[in-house]
Write a protein that binds this DNA or RNA. Structure first.
Lengths: 245, 245
DNA sequence: CTAATTCGAGAGCAGTGCTCTTGACAAATG
DNA sequence: CATTTGTCAAGAGCACTGCTCTCGAATTAG
């Protein structure tokens, strides 16, 4: 029993070491420059040994993708948790800032998840939850703010018009997927949230990563230098339609 | 004279054939799978011959990047030019739609310019103009709309607050770069445009490519299916602060 | 017509992902 | 305790990559 557990533990440890070395390589040379041979050289093992643990180079990259999603999500959540709960706008802005900071300090890992998709990478189901983490965090803050603003039902303001039937149906369908990626109370509250408010959160999520990607991928070069200031301004703009000021 | 011109013409033609073959490869296997040997196989020449025309594989990719920038820009401009000039919102929405359509029909070329940057690629100066083409088109439409709305000075409404000094200074600096990327009359009109309006255009530009990237890179999977409808809604949202309805 | 330049082809180098075989070691079974 | 079974790392090897160099052939310039 314990012997078998030990064997598995050694295996898990080695998998961890491989991933760590691969992450170092990734940070230095980028995804295209990640070589399993270089990884094994760093670890002092034969290149073929890696294939006992990862079926292919792409599989190793996929493992790093999952970790990276958890990395951004945790960074955002950790920063946001330090802000007083009733300071809703501060919490919202903190999420934007934390994502940007994580991206700037892990540029290649960020590019791995929000840049061009890896060819052989078909998003596994266990990626769904961590990938939507930041969006859910934004939704949670928006809900808290609505509740704090005296709306006893805790719901966000509804708007009419501008939303096609197909899009409205999509959001209805989305609501039914929340229980599998969010805690029950949040999922339930979101199910009661108007479609327009959920769309505003999706917009904010899109704007956040759109702006961070533009910054990291060089599209703001010779356009905007004060990119932190710009993101904060954008965050406020995205928050306004949700009643967050 | 004519002989030398002929020689150069042959050279330019071959460069074109290499790029075409490379583009085909790019469309099939993506940027990571682009191989100069495969390109030369398709053209029936030796792999080493390519290096007479492109110093490296990355240089070949860079050439494709420049072409791709021109491709989106032209697609947007061509679609927008077919809309009656006074239908400002239609022109605006058409730009959004055209960029999305181009991206969906050239996914790998889109990923090349708006996805993770190519490692050995340092944006050359001749990329600056085509890269900002879509943003300038959006700005032009916003200006036309403001002029059509009876503002005789053709300027967009100014807003106060929310813009840091550093960011405002960036936009002032940006205004001085317009003459080198935009036609004189547009550059002049933009120089007279309030900072807040220019920021709204930059936001729209960010939102457009943020949403298209999210769609193409799979982040809207299991979130939104009616992505065309969603982009149109986002386009209207981005247009509103510019007085475009 | 000759000299200089340009060009394509081929060989070759160092590197890659990945497969297969071989032999050592540990775990479970008799 | 001895034997079988399964796991593992290592090494050789294949097909491929980007890229360099050399060597003739073709073309241009003087």
């Amino acid at each position: 029993m314990s012997t078998r557990g030990l064997r598995e533990r050694v295996r898990d440890e080695l998998i961890g070491e491989i991933k760590d070395a691969a992450r170092r390589q990734l940070a230095e040379r980028g995804a295209a420059g990640l070589s399993v041979r270089a990884v094994t050289r760093e670890l002092g093992m034969a290149s073929s040994a890696v294939y006992r643990y990862f079926p292919s180079r792409d599989a190793l990259l996929t493992a790093l993708i999952v970790d990276a999603y958890e990395g951004v999500g945790e960074a955002a959540r950790r920063a946001e948790s330090k802000i007083a709960r009733e300071r809703h706008l501060d919490r919202w802005l903190t999420v934007f800032r934390a994502v940007r900071e994580w991206a700037r300090s892990h540029p290649h890992e960020y590019a791995l998840i929000y840049g061009s998709p890896v060819p052989g990478y078909a998003a596994p189901d266990d990626t769904a939850a961590p990938a939507s983490d930041v969006a859910l965090l934004l939704a949670e803050i928006a809900l808290d703010a609505a509740a704090g603003n005296g709306r006893t039902d805790g719901s966000l303001p509804a708007e009419s018009g501008g939303v096609s039937d197909a899009l409205a149906a999509d959001i209805e369908a989305l609501k039914s997927t929340f229980p599998s990626v969010a805690p029950p109370d949040l999922a339930e509250a979101l199910a009661r949230t108007p479609t327009s408010a959920i769309l505003h959160v999706i917009d904010a999520w899109t704007m956040l990563f759109g702006a961070v990607s533009f910054e990291l991928f060089g599209h703001y070069r010779r356009v905007i230098d004060a990119r932190g200031d710009n993101l904060e301004r954008l965050a406020r703009k995205a928050a306004a339609p949700l009643g967050l000021h």
